Amino acid sequence: NWENRKLPDWPAVEIREKSVRGTISNRLKTQEQDPAKLDAKIQHPNLQTVDVATLPADADTLRISFTLRILGGAGIPSACNRTDYQEALTQVIGQYKSDVGFGELARRYATNLANGRFLWRNRMAAEQVAVDVHKLEQGERTTSWHFDMADYSLRSFETTDTRLNNLAATIQTGLEGSGHVLLEVVAHARMGNGQE
């Protein structure tokens, strides 16, 4: 529950299958443009099995956690069998590094972590979202940033503050390859009791 979101142990949300009756496509081949055939086809159900996960009836908050490693070496492909392409890529990325740098890219990564974009439709359905990002060094949290979804737009990268700037600077260090960056992201989305 939202009030207990600081508790360390959370039960896993179980994924289960459910059957649904989907809509059927009414697109007919050119030779089947007979309205009688159209009416006949929509009478047949389009049965499907889908995965679904819901919160328990007495729980209102979804907790999602993952780690994110920021790798340096942009422009150096890990596998490439065309040297002309590799040289061109290295040249373009080198030019980008010298002209623009990784500051804006790092700020956009940081903004998307802060606004909870990774929650997809769970973010849209949530009443509240809190995101905590922790920098990990040798398995220990060394720096932490807390973000509230309401402070960061999904449609703009204009919002900036000290926390966001500090996280962006950390991500930039990783992108440039000048430091090892491993982040732990923990998000809490208040969905409502028993919600999908």
Rank of each mutant, 00 (worst) to 15 (best):
L28S: 13
L68T: 02
K18Q: 07
E104S: 14
Q128V: 07
T49N: 08
R107P: 01
K37R: 15
V50L: 02
L68W: 11
V181E: 01
K6G: 14
L55T: 08
G22F: 01
P77E: 03
S65V: 10
N193Q: 05
V181R: 02
Q128Y: 09
Q128C: 04
Y85R: 12
L55F: 10
E17K: 15
Y109K: 00
L38V: 08
T83V: 12
V20Q: 09
E127S: 15
A187N: 03
S178M: 05
T142I: 15
R16M: 13
R16T: 15
K97G: 09
K135T: 10
W10D: 09
R141L: 07
H44I: 13
Q172G: 05
T170N: 08
T170H: 02
Q43D: 09
N166S: 10
T49F: 08
V186P: 00
V92D: 07
T54N: 13
A189C: 02
G101A: 02
L167K: 01
N112V: 04
M124A: 14
D99T: 14
V92T: 11
P77K: 04
S65C: 05
A106Y: 03
R5F: 00
E196W: 13
T61G: 03
A106S: 02
L38I: 08
V92K: 11
L183M: 04
C80K: 02
K135S: 10
L62C: 04
L154D: 15
L182C: 01
S144I: 09
E104Y: 12
F102E: 13
L38N: 10
E137I: 13
L55H: 08
T30M: 07
I70N: 02
V185I: 15
